[in-house]
Structures are given as C-alpha cells and as structure tokens.
Design a binder for these strands. Structure first.
Length: 529
RNA sequence: GGUCCCAUCGUCUAGCGGUUAGGACAUCGGCCUCUCACGUCGGUAACACGGGUUCAAUUCCCGUUGGGAUCACCA
C-alpha cells in the first residue's frame, strides 16, 4: 500500500486524524499523566516533564494522573516510589489520580496505578491483538535470534531487525514465549506532534517488537499504550528521547482501534552540548535542590524555561505559569543545563517573589539544622530575614547569614578577631558599646517600622563616628567582627537593630576587653606624616 | 551505519520578512560603600555555511556541515 498525499491513511486503511481526535477529546476533559519508573530519585528532567503535563491539566481544568511504571523488576524499589512522591509533593505538583502513600491501588477510578498490578489487563489486550491477527506468540529463543543476527555481515548487525519464524503461525505451544506485535510491512506513521509538527516514519523501520515478555510482564511500549488507553489519557507529553517509541505506540493504537492522544515531545536537558545530564555533572535529583535550600517555585522557574518561554520573563509562581503555559511556545532544540543560572534564578526568586511569611517558614528548618532552636514565630526572625534576604542565593545560605543573630555568642572567626581586635580598637569598641546601649531600641520600642528605625539609628551612628573623630572604615570591621564574628554581614545599623541594645552592647564590650589585652597592631610604624 | 530530530551571544532564550538582533546568567570595567552582597551604569559576545523564493531574509524552501536521539525480553 502506498500512501497518498493529502489524505494520510494508516497502515490499516483508516484515516489518520490524531489531531482531530485529540480535539474531540479535549471537548470533554483533558487527562494528562506523568509516568515515572521508580529506579531512583526524581530527576530534574523528569520534574520538567511532570511540570508541563501538570500545567496543562491545571490550565484546562483537566486531570493529572500519576502512574508508576514498575515493570523492570531488576531496578525498581519501594524507596524510589517514596522518593518520587516526596519530590512531587515538595514541588507542589499534586496529582488527582494515582497512588498515595500506603495505598497502592486507590487514588482514583482508573487504578491500580502501578503497572505491576495491572498485568491481567495487559494479558487481555495482548489476547485481543492476537485474536485480531495483530500480534502473535513467538517461541524463538535468544539463541535463535542471536544466530539470525550473527548470520548477517558485521556491518548490518547494528540495525538488525529480527524476523520471527512464528510471525505467520497461530499455533499455541506449551513452551515459554513472548507476544510480538505483527508490524505491518508497508506504510508510514505520522506523529502529529504539538511541538515538532509532523514526524513521519516508514513502518518498515519498525521490527516486530515484543508486547509481553516471557515472564508475562509487558514491555514499555505496550504497557504504556494499554494504560494510556484504559486511563483515558488525552495528552502525552514526554522527553524527545521517546519519539522513537511513539511510532510503534501509534501502530498499537491503530491496531486496537483506539484514538491517539495528542502528543508533545519536549527538548532534552543536556549537561553539555553532547552529554546527557547525569549525576556526575552535579545535582540532578529534585530533593537535592530542596536540601540545598531552593524554593520549589524557584527551581520550577528555571526548569520551565527549559524549552519554553514567555518573552523575557524568568520568575514565575505557579498560578502565573498556569495562566501563561502553552504548547505552541515550547521549543524544539535541546538545551544545556546551567547550575549557576539555576542558582541565580533561585536567588532572585528569594529576593523578589516570596512573602516574608514564606521565607520565615522556609528558613526555620535550615536554622534548626544548624543547631539553632529558633521557632518560626521568633520575635526577631522577620527583621533578621529582612537584612539578608537579598543577599542569599538559597535558604541554606540564608540560614548561614542569620546564624549570629540567634546564637548566644557568635562563632568567632579567630583570624579576623586577631586582626581587628587590636589595642587601638579597644576604646572605639568600648565607646560604640555604650552608644549601642543608649541608642539602639528594642523591637517593642520602635516608633515606625524597621526601615524608619534603621534610618534613625544609621544617622545617629554616623554622627557618633564623626563626633569621636573616627572613621567608618577603621571602626567598621572591628565592630562587625565583634557583633557577628565575621568579616562580612549586613550593615552595622541593621545588625545592631536586630540584635537589640543589650546583646549589641555586650558583644562590643567583650570585644573591647579582648582588644585592650592585645598588642597594638604591628604595622609599618606610626602613620603620622 | 539505518531511522528520526535539531541549529540566534559561552549558556537559557526573545524574535514569528523590513529591528542599532532584545533580556537573563556568566564574564570584564565603573559607580555605590562600614565588610560582603544587593543594586546600578557600561563593555565584550550570536543569527553555522551555501543555494534559492522575495523589492527585502535571522525569519520561508532546499542542500551542506555540525550536533542530538534511538536501534533491548530497560523505561
């Protein structure tokens, strides 16, 4: 059969109208899915795929299904399933149907949602295909297949396609066998892809692929199609590496007489132009980002721009993404993942896209991880965060920047202490201690907000420095080390304001005492001209 | 090698026939400055190449080159 242009026919003579079928389905309700296999952590590439599916479901009022493709018994684990749940929940990608903790079957009307619990279904569909002549039992052994391959000249072995002697037979023997699809010998499959457009492949390039393995478990392409059909999936969006699978899958839909879902293949995330992104390139597991103090929407803001864009926008909250997302803006070319940019996006997200409350709640676990018993309603927490929020790339960094505010004594950078707590700095530090005691107000006594109070104290601080004939440059670092234990921090007025009068004065006084006991700075001698 | 796909600064991208080709990260320099950041101002930096189509191509078509995906009883 040859294909006539303009009126695409499938290999069984039916018109191919996947787009139209998809449109018809869309008039009901879109159903999308994310179908990871539990072989480890949730990869950020998988998260991107899940996100696109989730966005379309949420945008259209559709249904988002989570299905676990656990037919590779060698590599699956229960921990991986939990890891996927954890990561999805942290990202805020909730599913309407799918497994829940401790409930492998429930979660919706199309369950079970673990492929390993749907084996009977695959059996039924396989029988259906055998009965209709679209599939056959193949009793060929591995040895026979290898023999056929080895009989070929070496150059042709690469693209070897097994031709089974059982293809035309219907005998049912009591011997181990697989079920193979009886791939048509002619024709063309057209994928009507929402991202790539029409992708045409000659059916002759597809071999009689296995539907059901000898161990009765389905192989990916078959399980996937049976599930997508029985779960009523209307849109399939997955990585571009699946394009090769889509051709045999479409053949399956056609043989089964089922509507083909709308397809979207997404560009891949690479580590370099020529390497797939993997663990050795850096953080690829979603939970690693959580642990490093990324915000879910911060990470998602970076991931969504991978193959999709809305002009120059870079920071998105989910609600905005749901509004903006559209398949027509998805690009075709692969991209290289940039950890630095990801971090920078998270920093901007932290600085600009989060409320004080979100930050407060978000940073507390990281503070506790540092051994600081800070509760999220700590009276100084909100002000403290205000002083560091624009300088932190992650919540981990933020917790670090917050450390000295909540420690009885700051962890002292000894090298800095020796450098700055000199005999010369003793008196200025003592004076500043007195200044702090007299001028820094307790939070409860602020007349305006933090900003107004800061303006007031900063002015007083500057006046104090000028009156004493001191220089900011000379006093700044000794005072900073005294107050924070480090050489880098927010401005001193901010620090003192958060610390309050008593603590500020105490830390400065103790530093002054230590300075008084130190030898004078051994520089090049008197600096007087 | 077969089949399929892709191609704008180093990177992510905007652009959908006429633009000084824009933004962000990175990078370089200035400013701000009590430190580190933030911020801010500015610089370097791209349409892979060759043919068409068109009054006009980054944009449409073809080819070349380059890159990627995949060729399992993995998913």
């Amino acid at each position: 059969m040859t294909l006539c242009r303009g009126a695409a026919m499938d290999v069984y003579g039916a018109r191919i109208l996947p787009a139209k079928q998809a449109r018809e389905r869309e008039m009901t309700i879109p159903r999308l899915r994310f179908a990871p296999s539990p072989t480890g952590y949730l990869h950020i590439g998988g998260a991107r795929t899940a996100l696109f599916n989730w966005l379309w479901a949420r945008k259209t009022g559709g249904v988002f299904v989570l299905r676990i493709e656990d037919t590779d018994t060698q590599r699956n684990s229960r921990e991986s399933v939990d890891a996927i749940f954890t990561a999805m929940r942290w990202l805020g990608l909730d599913w309407d149907e799918g497994p829940q903790d401790g409930d492998d079957l429930g979660g919706g009307p199309h369950g079970p949602y673990f492929q390993s619990k749907r084996l009977e279904l695959y059996r039924q569909f396989a029988d259906r295909l055998i009965a209709s002549g679209h599939a056959y039992r193949c009793y060929a052994t591995k040895e026979e297949i290898d023999a056929q391959r080895m009989a070929l000249p070496e150059k042709q072995r690469d693209g070897f396609r097994f031709v089974s002697p059982w293809r035309e037979k219907t005998a049912e023997l009591d011997r181990p066998h697989v079920v193979r699809f009886k791939t048509p010998t002619t024709g063309e499959v057209v994928i009507d892809d929402m991202v790539f457009g029409a992708i045409k492949t000659a059916v002759s390039t597809v071999q009689d692929f296995i539907l059901i393995r000898e161990n009765a478990l389905p192989l990916y392409n078959f399980g996937c199609v049976v599930d997508d059909i029985t779960m009523g999936i209307t849109h399939v969006a997955r990585g571009r590496d699946h394009i090769i699978n889509t051709t045999p899958q479409i053949l399956l839909y056609q043989a089964l007489g089922e509507a083909i879902p709308a397809m979207a293949h997404l560009p891949m995330m690479m580590a370099t132009k020529s390497e797939k992104l993997s663990k050795r390139h850096g953080a690829v597991s979603v939970t690693e980002y959580r642990d490093q103090g990324y915000l879910p929407d911060g990470l998602l803001s970076y991931l969504v721009r991978f193959g999709w864009a809305h002009g120059d926008d870079e920071l998105f909250r989910k609600e905005r993404l749901i509004e903006l997302f559209d398949w027509s803006k998805v690009s075709k070319s692969d991209g290289v993942y940039d950890f630095k940019k990801c971090r920078a996006i998270n920093q901007k997200f932290l600085a600009k896209m989060t409320t004080d409350d979100e930050l407060r709640l978000g940073v507390v676990p990281f503070l506790r991880a540092r051994g600081l018993a800070v509760r999220d309603d700590h009276p100084r927490l909100a002000d403290a965060i205000r002083t560091v929020r624009e300088r932190s790339e992650t919540l981990v960094a933020m917790a670090d920047a917050l450390d000295y505010y909540f420690r009885a004594k700051p962890e002292m950078d000894e090298a800095a202490a020796q450098k700055f707590f000199t005999a010369e700095s003793a008196v200025p530090l003592q004076n500043l201690s007195e200044f702090a005691e007299a001028n820094v107000r307790d939070r409860a006594d602020f007349e305006g907000g933090f900003l107004e109070e800061h303006t007031r104290l900063d002015a007083l601080f500057r006046a104090f420095v000028a009156e004493r004939g001191l220089e900011m440059k000379a006093l700044g670092q000794p005072a900073r080390v005294a107050l924070t234990g480090r050489t880098a921090s927010p401005d001193l007025a901010s620090v003192m304001l958060v610390l309050g009068p008593a603590v500020s004065a105490l830390r400065l006084r103790e530093a002054a005492e230590r300075a008084a006991a130190s030898p004078s700075a051994t520089t090049d001698g008197p600096t007087t001209p």
